[in-house]
């Protein structure tokens, strides 16, 4: 296990040169080598989804991906979600408005899960949203407020994306 690799990761638009063992998961690497601890590990076997990040736009469990597999990919984590000036992303704002978090441990995973899905399909209906949200586990909220928040954010994001209707 002593062989290590120098790899370059692109995370939230920044470049990270890191030295990893081949067995290091992307999640561990983001947390330990890149210092991005917003990505959380809840199970390390791909069920809970707390570690969800976007890899080339697709929501992925970062505990099930090795860091050495994603060289050259664009990775997005929760730290890249808000504007540089601190303005919250509509998803973050909606989670706050609708009490979509309690302990907040699973929250980054839900935010990234929803972000990836809404970029792919901004017009998800409630049933599709429930199906999506069922990908991850939350132990505090009972999901109701997460669904409400993602619905509200989806509506907000769609309204933002469309030009204002003609008077």
């Amino acid at each position: 296990m002593s062989d290590r690799h120098d790899i370059t990761l692109r995370v939230n638009g920044a470049t990270h040169h890191v030295n990893v063992e081949p067995r290091y998961s992307l999640a561990d690497t983001l947390r330990d080598a890149c210092g991005l601890t917003g990505t959380h590990l809840g199970c390390e076997h791909g069920v809970c989804g707390a570690c969800t990040v976007l890899i080339d736009g697709r929501a992925t469990r970062s505990c099930l991906v090795f860091a050495v597999q994603v060289e050259g990919s664009e990775i997005e984590t929760v730290e890249g979600l808000a504007e540089p000036d601190g303005t919250l992303h509509p998803l973050q704002q909606a989670f706050w408005e609708h009490h979509g978090l309690q302990c907040g441990f699973c929250t980054p995973g839900f935010l990234m899960l929803a972000l990836g899905a809404l970029r792919e399909n901004p017009d998800m209906d409630d049933e599709e949203l429930r199906d999506l949200i069922a990908s991850n586990l939350c132990r505090c909220t009972g999901y109701q407020n997460i669904l409400t928040a993602v619905r509200a954010a989806a509506d907000m994001m769609r309204a933002k994306a469309q030009p204002a209707p003609n008077p």
Binding site: L36, H40, V78, L81, L88, G104, T107, P108
Partner: peptide, 8 residues
């Protein structure tokens, strides 16, 4: 907690 700055 929303911006990934929680300290667990």
């Amino acid at each position: 907690l929303l911006i990934g700055a929680g300290v667990f």
